[in-house]
């Protein structure tokens, strides 16, 4: 391994280690809230209301919404981790520690994205474990399940990074999650199948990227989906590649970081 490559490998390990330590240290703010929120969803929507709704596409309502709820936690936590962590480094000006170092922009970006993905996966594991108290899960297609969750976490980590780059104050990091992510998640087929909607709204729903993620993940676990899996995975790969390129360009140009 060349000296440059080895140095970048150490730098990547440093960033990832720092990111993981950060969200583990503040676990009451990072890991506990999604666990409590999801238990409430399982109890109220899955158990109490779900019993009145009955089956959906051959599964109990609880079984039907669990994949969507796991995906919802992955999306919000991956995004939230990177946006708050990277904005924090800008706020404290410790981003300068990274900018003056010889660490490659790829390393800096990948380091923060891995941090977001790991938090997303950690929350997914917690929510999945909790869901087992309310229903039983059997994975229909392990590779699709893992690929989709990994891609979704990567995409939203990158979105969080871009948000953090442009954010100038703490309000700017909560606008997107509140006014964009939450509505798109609720309208992304977490609680219903789009086949229940009129045809026009079914077509409109297809423009919601979260619908594709939720359904692809639901396919991985339950084997049912409202959309074509191949299309969903291709769109996710494309989105990840575009967002990575945009994030890298912002980092290289030092937008919001260099004068």
């Amino acid at each position: 391994m060349s000296v440059e490559l080895q140095a970048n490998w150490v730098a990547l390990q440093t960033i990832v280690h720092k990111e993981v330590r950060r969200f583990m240290r503040i676990w009451p703010q990072t890991l506990l809230p999604p666990a409590i929120t999801m238990v409430l969803y399982f109890v109220i929507f899955g158990n109490l209301i779900g019993r009145q709704i009955g089956d959906m596409r051959g599964f109990s309502y609880m079984e039907y919404i669990v994949p969507g709820l796991i995906m919802m936690s992955v999306i919000t936590n991956s995004y939230g981790n990177v946006v708050s962590s990277f904005f924090g480094t800008k706020f404290h000006r410790s981003v300068e520690e990274l900018m003056v170092s010889p660490a490659s922009p790829h390393v800096i970006l990948v380091g923060f994205v891995i941090g977001g993905v790991l938090r997303g996966l950690a929350v997914a594991a917690i929510v999945t474990a909790l869901s087992l108290f309310f229903t039983h899960l059997q994975v229909h297609h392990a590779l699709v399940t893992f690929a989709v969750i990994l891609l979704a976490a990567t995409i939203f980590s990158l979105c969080g990074f871009i948000n953090a780059v442009y954010a100038r104050n703490f309000d700017d990091i909560s606008i997107i999650p509140t006014f964009v992510l939450t509505p798109l998640t609720y309208l992304g087929g977490v609680f219903y199948s789009i086949s229940m909607l009129p045809e026009f709204w079914q077509t409109v729903s297809l423009a919601n990227p979260i619908l594709h993620m939720v359904n692809a993940f639901r396919y991985g676990i339950l084997g049912v989906s409202d959309i074509h899996i191949g299309t969903a995975v291709t769109l996710m790969l494309l989105a990840a590649a575009i967002l990575y390129a945009v994030s890298l360009r912002l980092l290289k140009r030092g937008v919001g970081m260099r004068q």
């Binding site: 000296v3 140095a7 440093t14 404290h92 170092s101």
Partner: peptide
Amino acid sequence: NQFEKPFDIVVAQAGYYG
């Protein structure tokens, strides 16, 4: 980052330099 400890700050900076 003023919430971090001096030792961690210096070690992390060394890490960024490989």
